[in-house]
Computed example of a mutant assay.
Amino acid sequence: MLGLSKLLAMAATVGLAAAPALAQGGPEAQASTASRTSSLSWVRLPGAEDCATAPELARAVEARLGREVFVAPRNAELSVEGRVAPGDGGGFTATFAVATAGGEVLGERELGTESEDCSELTATVAFVVAVMIDPDAEERDAPEPDTAPSEAEPPVETDAAAAAAAGNGQEQNQEQNQEPRITDEAALSGWSGEIDGGLGVAVGLVPEPTIGGFGAIVIQTPWFIAAEFNASLYPYSPQSVGTGDVHWLTAFGGFLLCTAELGLGAIGLRGCAGGEIGFLRIGGVVDPPQDHIVGHVLVRARLAYRPWKGLVVWTRPTLAINPATDPYGYATSPTATAGYTPETVAGIFDLGVGWIFD
């Protein structure tokens, strides 16, 4: 849990880190920090929905600084980017960085709390961000921030006369009308991974419904597209014929591209499309066994529920489209034959669990 002594220690660290830059600039540089503006991007990852939103965090920082700080990104001298997520051992962890408009990173911090009440961490983050924007903020008493949601965020005020004198007042006003004052929550742009496993029932792959298992690795890219690599095995499906049973075995490896997950709280939905190629063996009373190479075009939807940290439980209905439907013919005895024509579209219904590595 974050106590007062730890908070003061962090403030001292931030203040000392900013001191050399202020000393080099003299009184003018120190005065300029008191009027610096910033943009804010703040993301609550799944499991941290009860933590402060971007507007609430912005109000807490501005309350400590005693002025409006956050403006549209194009007009900001600094940028603050951060996220909050459930901690590995409980509580919450926040990571954020402050950089100049030119991209120079002024500081990066990771703060955590074991408390299940995220408001304590929000207050600490607001304090440290305020000090990183204006080091003199640590010497001020923090007023009570007004975190009640407002009907609309106030627009960024500009000095119209100064803008007109600079010859670009109209352009700045257009930018402020088009851009949000604060970059609110969005899907996190970054890499993450997921490992899945489960069981499924397939209808139409072979003559009888078959049960199998599968595993998958999903890689979420920064471009809001996920790549899935999977493997499945349906080891045994009997087909009764007059002389006994024909045994069907299928194994596949596949690749799909998926959309970004559309989420509502802990529930997410995504669509995928791709293909798989595999191996089909027809055995049992078929002697010698027959081996075939088969492939499918896959169209899939995935409905997932994330109940705790990185754990995810999901179901995946899939359509497997068979581009080749040539019949299989096989001898079941020296005097008897049988055959099977694959379905054009097979259905697969999976249930499984996975773990997401953010």
Rank of each mutant, 00 (worst) to 15 (best):
M132A: 06
A23E: 13
G200L: 14
I356L: 11
R270Y: 14
A21I: 13
I182D: 02
R59Q: 03
G352D: 06
G169T: 13
A19C: 11
G103I: 12
V201E: 02
R306K: 05
F252P: 09
T37W: 06
S5W: 12
A273L: 14
R36H: 04
A72K: 02
A63G: 12
H247A: 09
S79H: 10
A163K: 08
L121A: 03
A231H: 06
F252E: 14
T147F: 07
F92A: 00
L45Q: 13
S35C: 01
R300Y: 08
A164E: 14
A23M: 12
L57S: 01
E28T: 10
A18D: 03
A137H: 13
V286I: 04
F70C: 03
P55R: 01
R74F: 14
E108H: 03
E151V: 05
G295H: 05
E116M: 10
V312L: 11
S119V: 07
L188N: 08
G107R: 15
S38F: 07
L311V: 04
L264E: 10
W191S: 00
M132G: 03
F229I: 14
A166M: 13
V203G: 09
P86C: 03
L249V: 13
M132D: 03
A58H: 11
A320Q: 11
E151G: 00
V80L: 01
E28Q: 11
D159K: 02
V203F: 13
V299F: 15
A126S: 11
A165E: 15
V286M: 01
E144M: 05
T221A: 02
G263K: 07
Y305N: 11
E153W: 12
T183E: 14
T341L: 06
K6G: 01
G87F: 10
E343Y: 07
L22M: 12
G25P: 13
E157C: 05
G112F: 15
A60K: 04
S189T: 14
A148E: 07
S5A: 09
G271Q: 05
A137F: 15
P207N: 04
A324E: 13
G212K: 14
A260F: 13
R281Y: 04
A162D: 15
G310N: 07
V294D: 01
A34K: 14
N173Y: 15
P145G: 00
P288M: 08
D141E: 15
G26Q: 03
L256M: 10
T221I: 11
V218G: 01
N168K: 07
E49H: 08
W308L: 06
I211T: 12
L106Q: 09
G265C: 10
A123R: 10
I195L: 08
W191T: 00
F70P: 01
T13H: 08
R270H: 14
A17N: 00
Y234V: 03
R109E: 11
P288A: 05
S38N: 06
G310Y: 10
G198R: 02
K6D: 04
A31V: 08
E28S: 09
A231K: 04
A31Q: 10
T341A: 07
R281T: 08
V206H: 07
I182G: 00
P20A: 05
G242D: 14
